[in-house]
């Protein structure tokens, strides 16, 4: 009897949690398989589910979708570039600070941490001005570099935590074996922190793919912008095709969700451990 009561209580918590979590996502999905009329009717399931919206999006058959594929490619390219550059920058810095004990490393790490803790929207303002000064505004490099700036502090920190756990004797053994600093980095260090590299690379990639604010500030040309900015443009019209907006949104949301679940093992261990060290 007491057991039954406990189960009932758990279910009473579980159901609202499920509804709360899924409702906006289900709503998006619902729109993507509905015609405009049915989407606006407020039903919980369309009378005539259809994949037409996806066809429209893929064939770029709407004013708002004129450059869908181009923008999808932009998002992809920028995300991959940010992931790769962040990995290079962060792995080098973490190795230098943690394993080579480079003088000033502590200071650099603190600078990185400080950057990590500047609220993103606050850094956006001076970053925008600086990109203007550098003549990078409205180029994709501006967004790539901005996202690398934002992703690398945390990446460095996570990698440094992981590096600090490697035994010193490995470096010494490699030195005696005749390894140069670069060989130590390539042949011993990188393979040993590979799991953290996966976590950090995925983190940077998703951060860039998902970013709205910086993309919307730094890019403006329709052919340069990324998908989230294009989604934002839908709002500029009074009678936007919401069913197409939701369809595009769903297509845009799927890859990061898939990547997240594929790398969940690395992400959760690496990122939760890193985010809050109590």
């Amino acid at each position: 009897m007491k057991r039954l009561l406990t189960e009932a209580k758990l279910v009473l918590i579980g159901i609202p949690v499920a509804i709360w979590t899924l409702l906006p996502i289900y709503h998006m999905f619902l729109f993507s398989i509905s015609t405009k009329e049915e989407a606006f009717s407020g039903e919980l399931w369309p009378a005539h589910p259809t994949l037409r919206n996806f066809g429209v999006v893929f064939r770029e058959q709407n004013y708002f979708l004129n450059h869908f594929w181009r923008q999808f490619a932009n998002s992809l390219l920028i995300a991959v570039a940010v992931g790769a550059i962040t990995l290079v920058v962060a792995a080098g810095a973490a190795f230098s600070i943690s394993r080579l004990r480079t003088r000033g490393g502590r200071l650099v790490l603190n600078c990185a941490l400080f950057t990590y803790f500047i609220p993103a929207a606050f850094l956006a303002v001076p970053m925008y001005k600086a990109m203007g000064t550098y003549g990078l505004l409205n180029t994709q490099w501006a967004l790539i570099l901005a996202m690398v700036t934002i992703a690398s502090p945390y990446a460095i920190w996570v990698l440094k935590q992981a590096s600090d756990k490697l035994p010193w004797e490995l470096d010494e053994a490699a030195r005696i074996d005749g390894a140069s600093p670069l060989q130590l980095f390539r042949l011993v260090y990188l393979p040993l922190i590979a799991p953290s590299l996966v976590a950090v690379g995925t983190y940077a990639l998703l951060l860039a793919w998902n970013e709205y604010l910086y993309a919307f500030l730094l890019l403006s040309n329709d052919k340069d912008i990324t998908l989230p900015v294009a989604l934002g443009h839908f709002l500029s019209a009074d009678d936007s095709p919401w069913e197409l907006l939701m369809t595009t949104g769903l297509i845009y949301a799927l890859p990061p969700a898939a990547i997240y679940y594929a790398f969940k093992r690395y992400m959760v261990a690496g990122l939760t451990a890193g985010a809050v060290k109590s």
């Binding site: 920058v89 080098g92 810095a93 080579l100 480079t102 000064t133 570099l145 700036t149």
Partner: peptide, 26 residues
Amino acid sequence: QAWGLVLLAPYVAVFLVFVLYPVGYG
């Protein structure tokens, strides 16, 4: 030591160019 500086340099550059200068300028 030299490689330590070389490997640290990219991030230092990122920090100087995209954090320190912008914030200072701002």
